[in-house]
């Protein structure tokens, strides 16, 4: 296995890490950079627990090679709050009890933020289809979908 050195921007900070050729971005984030907020639920792109933004697009970091990340900008759940101020989505998930075990929550938040950044006024159907790649086994999605819709409404009013 060949080794590589990658320089990228993660949550606004320039980082530099080694990786193997076959190593995924998810593994590099977790094991090289200690950013364990992105979770491995399936390693096949079917659960969305590892969702991150890569150059402005929502992706599963388990389906990206770490070596591909050179020169790219990556945003993870760890970069979502502004210092000590939670993002409105994070606040709303807490206020509505839109999480139970919480392991899917980082992926949902990253994905939901990507939606609201491009569409401030999504319908319930829009939210459900946008989030269809994020599996949650605890909530039945009801409170998650409500949290995203209510946050959108709050942010439009702000």
């Amino acid at each position: 296995m060949s080794h590589y050195r990658v320089t990228a921007v993660v949550n606004g900070d320039s980082v530099d890490f080694p990786c193997d050729a076959g190593e995924t971005l998810l593994d590099a984030l977790r094991d090289r950079l200690g950013l364990t907020g992105s979770k491995e639920g399936c390693a096949s792109g079917d659960c969305g627990a590892c969702s991150v933004m890569l150059d402005g697009r929502l992706v599963c970091s388990c389906l990206v090679l770490a070596a591909e990340a050179g020169g790219r900008e990556i945003e993870t759940i760890e970069g979502m709050a502004d210092g000590n101020a939670l993002h409105p989505l994070q606040r709303k998930f807490l206020d509505l009890g839109a999480l139970q075990c919480g392991v899917c929550t980082p992926g949902f938040l990253v994905a939901a933020k990507a939606l609201l950044d491009r569409d401030p006024d999504p319908t319930e159907t829009d939210v459900r289809y946008w989030l269809a790649g994020n599996l949650c086994r605890c909530t039945g999605y009801d409170k998650i979908v409500r949290a995203v819709l209510e946050t959108a409404e709050d942010m439009r009013g702000a």
């Binding site: 639920g41 079917d46 459900r128 994020n134 599996l135 949650c136 979908v145």
Partner: peptide, 15 residues
């Protein structure tokens, strides 16, 4: 796997 063990996704369910 989650591809063919088909758990409900958000768009499969109503409120």
């Amino acid at each position: 796997g989650f591809l063919d063990y088909r758990m409900p996704v958000a768009s499969d369910l109503p409120m």
